[in-house]
């Protein structure tokens, strides 16, 4: 009779315990940022490995998402004779929503999972312990550079995603379905606002970048140091990141664009 309640209590406690540990790790990473000044090379290398190596998937997905948006949008807009607004539709959808969200989801799958697996395996093979015993704090040497890399890479990836998406939309709108080129660009220019749309999109992608990188690093450092533990942690990174991105997206959208 008491068992389900007991279990609920237990998993609740475990959840808050993990959340607490995650927050401590986050604070320690922030507190260790100054140690990165002499380690700039590490940050650059990590930015390369989480950012540059994610470029291909971001560019390809951005292109297709933009093309699909233009096709779908055209089919609806043409009924109202408003197909010249296709540029607005493509640009606003990408900059406000799809750019930050889809690129963050891809980032979690491509870079987040890799971060978790890497850190988890470093833990399983005692590399993190060995660093501690060499008086080198793994939070400073391993985690902080990866965090900073994620922080800078994510907004850039989202921007590239949106830019490529707009180009994809342009190819379909102007090249395939025959929307007027001048109208496509000029309507887009008029409607997209730097503060309301672009800045808000950038803020979203910064938040997503921080959260995804944080989850990935925490799951790696909290993994049970076995092959099964690391594989579970990797799965958790992808699932939790996706949920966090979508949940936060709603909250941020409500705050930025909602009339609440």
């Amino acid at each position: 009779m008491l068992d389900p309640i007991q279990n609920l209590g237990k998993s609740g406690l475990r959840f808050f315990e993990r959340l607490g540990r995650a927050c401590i790790l986050f604070a320690r990473i922030l507190g260790g940022l100054h140690t990165l000044i002499p380690r700039l090379g590490l940050v650059i290398y990590q930015t390369y490995s989480v950012g540059v190596l994610s470029l291909l998937i971001i560019v390809v997905s951005g292109l297709f998402v933009g093309m699909v948006l233009a096709l779908q949008g055209y089919n609806t807009l043409v009924d109202f004779g408003a197909e010249e607004s296709l540029g607005i539709l493509v640009a606003l959808s990408l900059v406000r929503e799809l750019g930050p969200v889809v690129s963050a989801l891809l980032f979690a799958g491509r870079a987040g999972s890799a971060l978790t697996a890497e850190i988890g395996l470093m833990k399983a093979t005692e590399q993190l312990s060995a660093m501690e015993m060499m008086a080198i704090d793994p939070v400073h040497r391993v985690m902080a550079p990866r965090f900073v890399a994620g922080f800078f890479a994510m907004p850039l990836l989202a921007a590239i995603f949106s830019a490529v998406g707009v180009l994809g939309g342009y190819f379909v709108a102007v090249g395939v379905v025959g929307v007027d080129e001048g109208a496509f660009w000029s309507q887009m220019q008029d409607a997209v606002d730097l503060r309301d749309d672009i800045y808000n999109g950038v803020i979203k992608s910064v938040v997503f970048g921080v959260v995804v990188t944080w989850i990935a690093i925490f799951e790696g450092s909290d993994a049970i140091p076995t092959s099964e533990g690391v594989s579970r942690a990797t799965t958790r990174t992808v699932v939790h990141s996706a949920l966090a991105i979508l949940g936060l997206d709603f909250v941020l959208t409500a705050l930025m664009f909602g009339e609440i």
Partner: peptide, 9 residues
């Protein structure tokens, strides 16, 4: 010196 070496891979 760790039991398994624990070199940075």
């Amino acid at each position: 010196l760790f039991q398994n070496g624990a070199l940075l891979t």
